[in-house]
Design a protein around this nucleic acid. Structure first.
Lengths: 174, 174
DNA sequence: CTAAAATTTCAGAAAAGACAGAAATAACGG
DNA sequence: CCGTTATTTCTGTCTTTTCTGAAATTTTAG
């Protein structure tokens, strides 16, 4: 696929952003390319456009599929896999947040819970430390409870809530 | 400083989490250690406790200072620097979010704005792509506007809003 | 000003991560 | 089945990041 200068820069920028957030540069670039592309692309085209090895595209796509950020499509008379990305930014962020929560926050919560349980009968660890870990757990729990309560709200409601943010604050803050 | 098994595991876990989110493992470990430590620690003690080179601590601490996640303190009769971490998880997350926004989101916003401007007179790039980039920008702008509107609310108000999340949704959702 | 202590800088080693290309596997049409 | 095409896996190489230890610098007390 031919990239115009702006598309080129967009993809490069996205790759850099990705690597800052712990996402493989190639994976982020593939995602950016598919996000922009007007039509589904097959692996070879992705490899050629981004100038990376075909095998890397395979691995990258697999990861994006696992994240549900990319879907496979097919065309009649062509047995290759074609890929499209989720194009709605809200949906993209939702899927990423949900994925990171499941893969990173939930295990951390579980970990902190076992810590807190163990600490109940652990006289070795100073009380201050115990409180600190408990506080951390409580914080994360509050945050995830909130996330759970809003994550399935319809987009419109969410938008309204976001726009009203400050006004609501004034009302309930007295 | 002597680490109990739970403290040890906590620090290791935090280091792993950090590296998943693009934060240097040692830096995350130093932060975790200071977060738990009942009293300020000096660089040598941190190096010894975590089993890393003194120089590494120096660099790590510098970064944490730049992020405002750690402060320097002193004691009479001791000219070494002692370090303490911000202990309030809410404040920790606020500082991190604010920092990443400033260093990563804001530049991305600026970048997208120049893209959109350029695209106005760019007939080479397909209209679909232009719309996609504009959509991305609008999305990020909505998100940051919301963030700006709530970031300075007092903790209490924020907590109330979070607890009310679903109820508010019902009211304004009609 | 000097010497000791504390800290930082920096160059290179070590480790981790990303990548290419070959080989293996799978899917498909005939 | 067989040959072809598409895809994936795997291994070694290359790049980048992280880390160390020595040297340089800064700080401080006397």
């Amino acid at each position: 696929m031919r990239l115009t200068p702006v598309m080129h820069r967009y993809i490069v920028h996205w790759g850099e952003m990705g690597s800052r957030w712990g996402i493989n540069r190639s994976v982020a670039q593939i995602h950016a390319l598919l996000y922009l592309a007007p039509n589904p692309l097959h692996a070879d085209e992705i490899a050629e456009t981004l100038g990376i090895a075909r095998s890397n595209v395979s691995v990258g796509i697999k990861e994006l599929l696992a994240w549900d950020l990319v879907q496979v499509t097919h065309t009649l008379g062509d047995r290759r896999d074609f890929f499209v990305a989720q194009r709605d930014p809200w949906e993209v962020i939702r899927v990423i947040v949900e994925g990171r929560k499941r893969r990173e926050i939930d295990p951390t919560l579980a970990f902190l819970r076992t810590c807190v349980t163990e600490l109940e009968t652990d006289s070795e660890t100073p009380a201050e430390v115990r409180e600190r870990i408990a506080g951390q757990l409580e914080f994360l729990e509050t945050l995830t409870r909130w996330y759970d309560s809003i994550k399935s709200l319809p987009r419109k409601t969410l938008l309204k809530m976001m726009r009203l943010g400050q006004k609501i604050a004034k009302v309930i803050g007295e």
